[in-house]
Amino acid sequence: MTAQLRSELFKQRTTRTTLGLVLAMVVLVAAVILLHVVALPTQGLTGRQGQLKVLGLGTTFGMIFGSLLGALSITTEIRNGMIRPTLLAMPNRSRVVAAKVMACLIAGAALGLFSEAIAVGMGAAGLAARGIQIAPSVGDFAQLLVGGAAAAALWAAIGVGIGATLRNQVGAAISLVVWLLFIEMTVIGVAPAVGKFLPGASGGALAGAMLQETATYLLVPAVGALLMVAYAALAIGAGLVTTARRDIN
């Protein structure tokens, strides 16, 4: 198991995909945070809630890119054929999926922490530059960083599960992004009392922040964490079943 985990971590470090994801994430987070702190009226940026919405954007992007990292870790191998040597080296497919989940939990946490750190750093600097007092407490900032890392890690695990289930690289990536950016946002907008239980909102609950107007609907972090773990377990379970059954031609 540790051998396979080492191999998966090494694969992540030695492919351009990872670097590309990190770069894209950095650019997007920086651009969106900049846009918000520069363009939003002072009114919307004063107060703890308003600022948390903006600072929490790092978690949203951490979850998106974490999920992509997870999905690509398996769908890319299926696409380029690397899955064959991988399975010849380790024919126990469950162990391969488990190693990918663990490697993506680690890498996803790093992505989430990095993303939220950029958001917090740039966001706070931007607010200070506009002379707006920073309202969230030290505890809020700590939760943003730790929760953001945990949310991205768990979404990376979900990504592995979805990737293993759908197997198609583009299909899995689009499904995850569409889910997080459109489906969840729509449900949360229409029915926040239901939407808050969805996996993206549960991840936001870990960080204590969410972009939507309905941030007040966020679950408490412990409930969000439990739900996230359950969602990840479901996705991984589906991925394990699919991977065990399918032929690799």
């Binding site: 191999s7 090494f10 694969k11 351009r16 380029n80 054929g81 899955i83 040597p85 080296a89 380790m90």
Partner: peptide, 19 residues
């Protein structure tokens, strides 16, 4: 059956770690 973005040596190293 490789990741085209990985070097030949790193491809083999990834497999070496697994076995």
């Amino acid at each position: 059956d490789f990741d085209p973005g990985r070097s030949g040596r790193n491809h083999l190293r990834a497999l070496a770690l697994a076995i």
